[in-house]
Structure formats: C-alpha cells, structure tokens
Simulated scan of single mutants.
Amino acid sequence: MGISRRFFVSGAALALAGCGGGPGGKQATLMRPAVLSASNYRASGIPARFGDTDPHDWEGLAPARLPVHGIDAARYQGEIDWRRARAAGVSFAWLKATEGGDHSDPGFHINATRARAAGVPVGAYHFYYFCRSPEEQADWYIRNVPRRRGDLPPVLDIEWNHTSRTCQRRPAAHVTRAEMHRFLAALTRHYGTKPVIYTTIDFWRDNDLSRFSGYEMWLRSVTAHPMERYPGADWSFWQYSGTGVVPGVPGTVDMNAFAGSPGAWQSWLARRAQRA
C-alpha cells in the first residue's frame, strides 16, 4: 500500500518465531522504526495533529477538510501505541495480514489485538499476487484472519507490483476483473460482508475499474483529491499520504480519510462491520 520503509533504526528488527515466511524459509521480522514527532513535521492541508515527512502542497480539496481519519500499516511500523494513536484522532486502521498464497505479516495479530483493546476499529488487508489463483489467495487469507465481530471488512489491496522479483504477470483487464470477482466472492461468503477494494491510479486506469461495480473503493491519490485522479469514481476511503507521522506510530505510515461526517462514519461501521 505504498508503505514507507524510511526512518528505520539500522539493524533493529525483532524476529518472531512461528510467523509465516517467504520462499526459501526466510523468517519474517517485525521492524523497529525510529520514533518521529508529528510536531516536527507539520504540513498544511492535513489534520494538525498529524505530520508528513514529504508533504504535498495541498490546495482546495485538502484531506484536512474531512473529519474522520485512519491509518494502514504493516510490520514496517513495528509495534503501535494504539491508545496514543486513538487520542490523536486515529479512527480506524487496516493492517496487512497476508500476501499471495504463503506470506503472512507478523505484525498483524500483535497490532490488531492491541488496536481492539484501545477501541480502534481494525481490519485486515490482503496484497494480491498475480501468479497465484484467486481461490488459493482467498483460502490463505481466510486461514490467517479469523472472523471477529466488530472488525472492519476485509480489504483486497490490488495494484501493480513493480518491484516483484518472482511475478511479472500482468493479465489483460478483463482477466484481472474476473480474478478480482472470484477472490472477493470467496471472502464475502466467508465473512458475511463485502470486502473493500484498495487500488492505485495506474491500476484503476489500466484495468478500467470504473466498470467494476458492487464494491466500495479505497483510492490512493497523494497529490490530488480522488475526484481529479479518478474522474466519476465513487469512493469511501482516500489514502492521501504514504509518508505520514502519527502519534503512537513509529516511523512513517499511510494516512487515510473516510468520505463522510463522524455521524456517517458511525453509520458505516454499524452497517459494514463483521457480525460473526
């Protein structure tokens, strides 16, 4: 999800036994990033309680005009102080849980448990891998993410992975959309609520996702409002920075806004949270 990996303490990583690793038996790690102060990275156009290490010069439809904000994170953020994050205005969080058919993120269960305890609505996202079938990937996600009453809907994070060393496959647009439908249908059946789709500008354009209906969208756009980068698109969440500084979150983190008022957010939660 465009997660920034900067500001890590060199060599500081916690190896977690029993967590899923990648090919070759490499053990996954939970990073220990440097702690930053939001007050040192104030930026116009974003909520005053947050900061940004690489801010955009927001004008007009700036993120700060929306009242409900949250984060998405992975092992690169290390262990998050959720009570502090919530006090700073973090109203929701999605955490990376799985990727492909055999990768799991060691930070998910640690941070999800603590987020729930702090009263932050939390959910899990899956990073899609184009060299595994949708069914394999859905099964892997289901095996790693239990149904939990009150959790946010699952998220399909689907974007081109330009840095992948193992999969350069780029299906045709109609094939991509068909694979998405198969993955999403499997998760809907299991969790009883439709997943949210996270994507990027180029992936949206290349796969004509304006034709993809029936699911809520979470759109990445770090230099303009989504209405400028995704003309005519309906969206529920907007990722407006990949270099955010949020109290309680080590290093930098993706920042997001919900497309509605605090009252609309509470209504969305009541309607969309898992009921298992």
Rank of each mutant, 00 (worst) to 15 (best):
M227R: 15
Q168N: 13
C131V: 05
R132P: 00
E228M: 15
D206P: 02
L219P: 05
G232L: 02
R149D: 05
P146Y: 03
T176P: 01
V222G: 07
T113I: 00
F127I: 13
C167M: 13
L156N: 01
E216T: 04
L209C: 01
H162G: 15
L219R: 07
N207L: 03
H174M: 09
A233T: 08
L152W: 02
V196Q: 06
V222H: 12
R220D: 02
D202G: 12
W204V: 05
F212I: 11
S221D: 09
D157Y: 01
V175K: 14
A185T: 13
G150D: 00
R114M: 11
P153V: 11
P121V: 12
S133A: 02
R205V: 12
G123L: 09
W140G: 06
A115P: 00
H225P: 07
H190N: 04
I158E: 01
D139T: 11
L184M: 15
D208E: 15
Y230S: 09
I110H: 06
E135S: 14
A138H: 01
V155C: 00
P146T: 07
L152N: 04
W235V: 02
I158D: 02
T163Q: 12
V145L: 04
L209E: 06
I197F: 00
W218F: 09
P171K: 12
D202A: 10
H190K: 08
N111W: 11
G214V: 08
R211G: 07
T199L: 07
Y230Q: 07
I158A: 07
L187E: 00
S210M: 02
H181A: 15
R220Q: 03
P231D: 07
